[in-house]
Simulated scan of single mutants.
Amino acid sequence: MSMSDPHTFAGAYALDALDDDERTAFEAHLATCSECRQEVAEFVSTAGRLAFAASSAPPPALKHSVLRQISQVRQEPPRTVRETPVAQAPQRSPRGSLWPRRLALAACLVAASLGGVATWQHQEARQAREQAHRAEASADQVAEVLAAGDARTHTASLPGGARGTVVTSASQNRAVFTVSGLDAPPEGKVYELWFNDKGTMRPAGLLDRDQSTQITLMDGTIDQADGMGITIEPSGGSKTPTLPPVGLIEFPA
């Protein structure tokens, strides 16, 4: 690609589709062009929303479970009117007293199963809505940081040939971290981000262990932090680093 017109590279930059030389050249342009920062922010926001546009299918065993329980319910026989002599008390056989109970029990089983399906579907829908709302809010915050007039960018090489970029905004008091080419952490481990408060590490969120390229809004505010670090921690993260950082990036002044 040629960087003859850097304004056309906003979309490729947001999707991490530039090579090292193109990225370096575009980031130099990005520092002086508010229009491109706004365009990159909009691309990132849209990509963030699309990433969560996924449906959730019910478990395969659910259909078979419901059909199996339905097949065990015997159909109720047609009702008939029986004449009973006035002088003779109605007779109830043992089968006549037990069958309605069995039928009612079977019907309750089916109703409980279907009720469980409805509850499960409701919970799945609610969780999907909550996840979408969180993703949308995060994407909007990422866009605000990237589009801020005082946004500053710094890029550094990480182990394994990965490349990390942090964008900070003093007015937003937030930081956005992007990484590409990141090797998966060891089994049972996760990458954790930290704010570096002049030598003291403060937790700033976890990276998705299954994604080699990702963009994330760092948890918490920048405050007095002058840089960030990346460590490998046990699944779920740690309150303080348990190993030396695999990467350190200074925040631009």
Rank of each mutant, 00 (worst) to 15 (best):
L243A: 06
A170Y: 06
A135I: 05
P159A: 10
A125M: 11
A112D: 13
A137T: 15
N173E: 09
R152F: 05
M218Y: 03
T168I: 03
T221Y: 10
P186H: 01
E124F: 15
P203S: 09
Q211T: 14
G227M: 01
Q211K: 13
D226M: 15
Q224T: 14
V110R: 12
Q141W: 03
A170H: 08
Y191Q: 07
L217T: 03
A156V: 08
G205A: 01
S138R: 09
A106I: 00
R134H: 13
G236V: 01
M201R: 06
M218G: 03
S180T: 10
P241Q: 00
G116S: 03
N196G: 03
I232M: 06
D150F: 09
A139T: 00
G115E: 00
G161P: 05
A125G: 02
R174Q: 15
M228Q: 01
S169W: 08
T153K: 09
Q211P: 11
A112L: 12
D208I: 06
V110C: 15
G236C: 01
G149Q: 07
L146H: 03
T165P: 13
L105R: 14
P185H: 02
R209A: 12
G199P: 12
Q172M: 13
L193Q: 02
S169C: 08
V110L: 13
D183T: 11
E187D: 09
A111Q: 09
D183M: 05
L217M: 13
G188K: 09
A106Q: 11
S138N: 15
F177L: 10
F195S: 01
G227C: 04
I222K: 12
L217Y: 02
R174Y: 07
A175T: 08
G161E: 06
G160K: 00
A170P: 05
A148L: 14
G164V: 13
D223L: 06
V246H: 02
S113Q: 15
A128H: 14
L109F: 14
K189D: 11
P185G: 02
P203R: 02
A132Q: 09
E187N: 06
D197R: 14
T221M: 08
A204P: 10
P244K: 15
S113I: 10
T200W: 15
G188S: 04
L109R: 08
I230M: 07
R209E: 11
L217I: 05
G237T: 02
L105S: 10
T168A: 12
Q127A: 12
A151L: 11
D219H: 10
I232S: 01
A132K: 09
G161L: 04
A162V: 02
T168W: 06
N173Y: 02
